[in-house]
Simulated scan of single mutants.
Amino acid sequence: MATVTALYAGLCAILLIALAARVVQFRWSKNVGMGSGDDRLNQVRVRVHANATEYMPMALLLMLIAELNGLGALWLHILGALFVFGRLLHAFGLTWGKGGYHPGRFFGTAISWTVILVLAVIDIVKALGAA
């Protein structure tokens, strides 16, 4: 069973829905059917949600592969918690920075990329070791 990955997949799903809800709330309040309605804040909200949908699947897939190949629960929790923290930091940073530079955006992205790269290397090493 992949219970650790299941935990972080659930947390990521909740975050993804929360980010989507911010976009939907804006669209309803401004009667915008699609897109951002040329509103800068909603462009940022749309981008924050899109960015999460771009990175979450790969991170979770790599985590699942690592878990199924025997990576210890402690490492999975460290990497999973870091990834969720990075995604939260990115979302808040991009929003607070109004789409520009903000330390939260930078560090959130850096953490997310680092977790993905670490998991990728772990998976590659495990695959080569099994061959």
Rank of each mutant, 00 (worst) to 15 (best):
L68H: 08
Y55D: 05
A66P: 07
N51A: 04
R47K: 02
L68M: 12
L68T: 07
A52V: 14
M63Q: 10
W75M: 03
L71Q: 13
E54Y: 09
I78V: 14
L62K: 06
V46N: 08
H77L: 06
H77A: 06
D39Y: 00
L64P: 00
M63R: 09
G80D: 05
H49D: 00
L71R: 11
G72T: 01
Q43P: 00
L76M: 07
D39A: 07
G70L: 02
I65S: 00
L76R: 02
R47M: 06
L60A: 08
D38H: 09
A81Y: 02
A73K: 15
A59P: 06
A59D: 14
G70H: 02
H49A: 07
E67V: 04
D39C: 05
M58T: 08
A66I: 12
L71K: 09
L64C: 12
L64Q: 11
F83G: 00
A50Q: 14
A81W: 02
L61F: 15
E67Q: 15
G72V: 01
H49Q: 14
H49M: 09
L60K: 13
V48Y: 12
M56C: 05
Y55I: 08
R47G: 12
L68Y: 05
P57A: 13
A59G: 13
A50N: 11
L62C: 08
L68F: 08
M63K: 07
R40M: 12
L64W: 09
R47S: 10
V84F: 15
V48F: 12
G70A: 03
V84N: 06
A73R: 14
H77D: 04
A66Y: 11
N42G: 04
P57Y: 09
G70E: 01
E67P: 06
L41N: 04
A50W: 13
A81D: 00
D39M: 01
N42Q: 14
L41R: 08
L74C: 01
G80F: 05
L71C: 03
D38I: 08
G70M: 03
T53N: 15
G70Q: 04
L76A: 03
R45A: 01
L76F: 04
V46F: 09
L68S: 08
L61M: 15
L74F: 03
R40H: 14
R45F: 12
M63N: 12
P57G: 10
L61A: 15
N42C: 13
D39S: 11
E67K: 15
A59V: 14
R40K: 14
L74Q: 10
R40E: 12
L62D: 10
L71W: 09
F83Q: 03
V44A: 12
V48W: 09
L71S: 07
G70W: 02
L62W: 12
N42W: 00
R40G: 00
N69C: 04
R47I: 07
D38V: 07
V48H: 10
R45H: 10
G80T: 06
A66N: 10
F83L: 03
H49C: 06
L79F: 06
R45K: 11
T53M: 15
L62G: 11
D38Q: 14
N51P: 05
H77E: 05
A50R: 09
I78Q: 00
A50T: 10
R40V: 08
V46K: 06
